[in-house]
Design a protein around this nucleic acid. Structure first.
Length: 766
DNA sequence: CATTCGCGGGG
DNA sequence: GTGTACGCGAATG
């Protein structure tokens, strides 16, 4: 443990504070980052001359306890004796679930590293005392209370040691226009890093130069890395697999050579343990592997691979999430958007004087089949009418679930409230509170508004600005999506399954209402999915559609708009049984030439690039068709692409790198009951002593799909070009992809199977 | 044939 | 220090 208070601010790039013994002075600039350091937080502030200051501010996180007064007094006395707290007082706060004002004792924790100990105490006192605000990450907690946020403008008064006397924020995270932060970015990527061999390389690139490191070369690589960091002094290290591969490798080498890797700016924190194991968890039903992480002190490290936010929305989106939610940038980068959403809620709650319930670590119990059936019906799904259609319109509700939560006041504490009797919720008949505005709606409303503002501004913006606003919109969208998702999660700090149920019940009702309105207006419904309708009407005009959308918007309170009018649209049948429709499998071309595709091979992550691109090329040809008659002509044209690609595969000359199938492992190798290709590939990697984990993505090439010796079926070798792929197997995959888009049909597949496509589908079933 | 396993959204 | 569900389709045995 490091308990010594830094005597002087760590000098960054020469003497930032002038070096001399000024008594106190002012700094004006912007907050770059915040870390936690025992009884302090470390604030990194860039002043307006571009100099970075490391400031410290004392912070004693306030936690609250409710219960028998005598017991609470005793608790405070005990904790005081053990120096766990610096301050005690009684305050009035509001309880989250009931909304009631209650008297609680406020305890200011003397050092944030004592919080785990406090949680232990809290767990023991569970029966008598209820604790609040005891599991809020300290930097966030500091930001909630000071109203600072990442990248905010600050004015600070600091003493000669860099300790904050006073600090104030002078702008809002919600301002739309803001200059991009002037960051020095170092990019970092590896080649042939797994397994680590003499040919492994790490490339680090500044804006002007590039350095190649050979980690197998030992000290030389470490020195070269350190030299670049010292010289360039990046604010952000943007890596490809830095968390999972590059930093662990470099740190291993550095330790072996007894050298220090100069990752952090902050020299107060020196030791850094080498983590080699990450963590596997389940999210949204998917197994996800989270590699060990290497956040840095005093600069940012973002691993594009392990950052959902950066991967999905880029730096602009990540910063939007971070600023709005007050989550430090590196944390926002490594956590799910749900963490940002929760942070935003906690911020709101704390600043409204609402206590945050402690989320205990109870593993979620498996639901029974019956529960799943009755509780989680989810969004409404129609069966489309199989076939090819012209002049179909798609109309969508905008942000349906978030808007429902806002307009219907759906929140864990408002659903099934004890004060109102209205049986407002369709199907379920639950009550919804009419007296108190829910925390979720309060948090969501400004986000939904902000997305609308961005959308409006994007219309007249230049291309660059449009890209930035688009990324920020995407970031907010993800926050909104998770707001719905975690409401149904039992372990959620402020979750309640009935709230989740309420949203989907109202969602179904709303979609059905839209269907009725459309049908009453003379439209024919072809398909509907959760918040979208596909409709058709002879001689339909755009004005008519706009009127319909307006009516639906008025009647439901949720904005309905035209997603587009298709020149043509195909609802493809099931591949298993060709008369059965499939809800999410269609492709079509909008009047503006754009395509909408769902459920086809090219959308899947486990389709090899070669097949993906071949299908995309075929679709590209089809997209030029203006109607169904032309579509048929274009299919014949696209067939030439199919044949050319097929010939390439059969020649055996395709680059095997284009044939790699990437899949995410769902479990440990030993746990596979079936020796799937993925399992075989994983086995190979382990035999090559590559450490892989459930939730990690692996890649392999099919070498001999039907080999007796299963080890020969796939190859994970990265000796590119030496792999001989299974031509028949890839030819078959290409055929399936071509058939999906109607470029070939059953007859074309029959040569191998010998069966004549007996049940071919009529193109117009009606 | 039954069972196992991986994927989906968005842009 | 997280956060649906469930249906489709391909592969295995």
């Amino acid at each position: 443990m490091r308990r010594s208070k830094p005597q002087t601010p760590f000098p960054i790039r020469n003497q930032l504070l002038g070096g001399s013994a000024e008594a106190s002075h002012r700094i004006e600039g912007w907050l770059f980052d915040i870390d936690e350091l025992g009884p302090w937080v470390t604030l990194w502030v860039y002043d307006d001359d571009g100099r970075l200051h490391r400031l410290t501010d004392e912070f004693y996180p306030p936690v609250y306890a409710h219960g028998d007064r005598a017991k609470l007094k005793q608790l405070a006395a005990d904790m005081s004796k053990r120096d766990l707290i610096t301050r005690v007082r009684w305050v009035q706060k509001r309880e989250f679930w009931s909304g009631d004002e209650i008297e609680v004792i406020q305890l200011n924790i003397s050092d944030s590293s004592h919080l785990p100990k406090l949680r232990e105490i809290a767990a023991k006192l569970d029966r008598d005392v209820t604790f609040y605000n005891i599991d809020i990450p300290t930097p966030q907690h500091y930001l909630y209370l000071t109203k600072l946020f990442p990248l905010c403008r600050v004015k600070a008064l600091v003493d000669e040691h860099g300790n904050v006397i006073e600090i104030n924020v002078t702008n809002s995270a919600w301002e739309i226009r803001r200059p991009p932060p002037p960051l020095r970015v170092l990019r970092m990527r590896g080649e042939r890093m797994r397994p680590l061999t003499a040919t492994s390389r790490i490339i680090i690139a500044t804006e002007s130069d590039e350095t190649v490191l050979h980690p197998a070369g030992g000290a030389k690589a470490i020195n070269a890395f350190n030299e670049t960091i010292e010289r360039y002094d990046p604010d952000l290290i943007l890596s490809e697999r830095g968390d999972s591969v590059l930093f662990p490798a470099l740190l291993q080498v550095a330790r072996h050579e007894s050298l220090q890797l100069l990752l952090d700016r902050d020299r107060v924190i020196t030791e850094r343990k080498i983590e080699t194991e990450g963590r596997t968890y389940i999210s949204y039903g998917n197994v996800i592997y989270k590699p060990p992480s290497y956040p840095l002190f005093g600069r940012w490290h973002i691993d594009r691979e392990s950052s959902f936010a950066h991967h999905e929305t880029g730096l602009e989106g990540l910063l939007e999430m971070s600023m709005l939610s007050r989550l430090p940038v590196q944390r926002a980068a490594r956590r799910s958007p749900g963490t940002a959403m929760t942070s935003l809620q906690m911020d709101r709650a704390i600043n409204d004087g609402v206590l945050i319930p402690w989320r205990k670590n109870e593993p979620e119990k498996a639901k029974t089949a019956l529960q799943l059936l009755t509780v989680d019906k989810g969004g409404l799904t129609f069966q489309p009418r199989i076939g090819e259609y012209e002049n179909v319109a798609e109309i969508d509700f905008a942000s349906m679930y978030p808007t429902l939560m806002i307009t219907r006041n759906i929140s864990p504490e408002t659903v099934l409230c004890s004060c109102c009797r209205n049986n407002a919720v369709p199907e379920a008949g639950y009550n919804i509170c009419e007296k108190r505005r829910g925390l979720i709606p309060l948090t969501l409303e400004p986000l939904v508004e902000r997305r609308k503002v961005y959308k409006r501004l994007m219309k007249d913006a230049d291309e660059r600005t449009r890209a930035i606003y688009g990324a920020r919109r995407a970031a907010i969208k993800w926050m909104l999506v998770t707001a719905f998702g975690y409401m149904g999660y039992k372990n959620s700090r402020m979750g309640r399954i009935e709230a989740h149920e309420t949203v989907t019940a109202w969602g179904r009702e709303t979609l059905l209402r839209a269907k009725e309105i459309a049908e009453n207006a003379g439209f024919e419904l072809l398909h509907a999915l959760t918040d979208s309708l596909w409709i058709k009407k002879e001689g339909m005009t755009e004005e008519e559609l706009l009127r319909l959308c307006e009516t639906i918007t008025c009647e439901t309170g949720i904005e309905m708009s035209i997603e587009g009018i298709y020149h043509w649209l195909v609802f493809a049948p099931s591949k298993v049984k060709s008369t059965r429709p499939v809800a999410a499998r269609f492709y079509g071309v909008f009047a503006d030439g754009g395509m909408k595709i769902r459920g086809l091979a090219c959308r899947r992550h486990d389709t090899p690039q070669f097949v993906k691109e071949a299908q995309e090329e075929m679709l590209d040809v089809l997209s030029k068709a203006q109607n169904i008659e032309e579509l048929r002509r274009r299919r014949r044209e696209a067939r030439r692409i199919y044949e050319a690609r097929l010939a390439e595969i059969e020649s055996g000359q395709v680059d095997p790198r284009l044939l790699i199938i990437e899949q995410v492992l769902s479990r440990e190798v030993e746990e596979y009951d079936v020796e799937t290709r993925a399992a075989l590939a994983a086995r190979q990697l382990i035999d090559d002593s590559v450490n892989i984990h459930p939730g990690e993505k692996i890649g392999y090439v099919i070498t001999n799909a039907r080999a007796k010796n299963k080890a020969d079926r796939v190859s994970t070798s990265n000796r590119n070009g030496l792999v001989q792929y299974d031509r028949q197997e890839y030819a078959a995959q290409l055929k399936v992809a071509a058939k999906e888009v109607g470029v070939i049909d059953d007859d074309d597949l029959s040569d191998e199977r010998g069966g004549a496509g007996a049940n071919r589908l009529p193109l117009f079933p009606d």
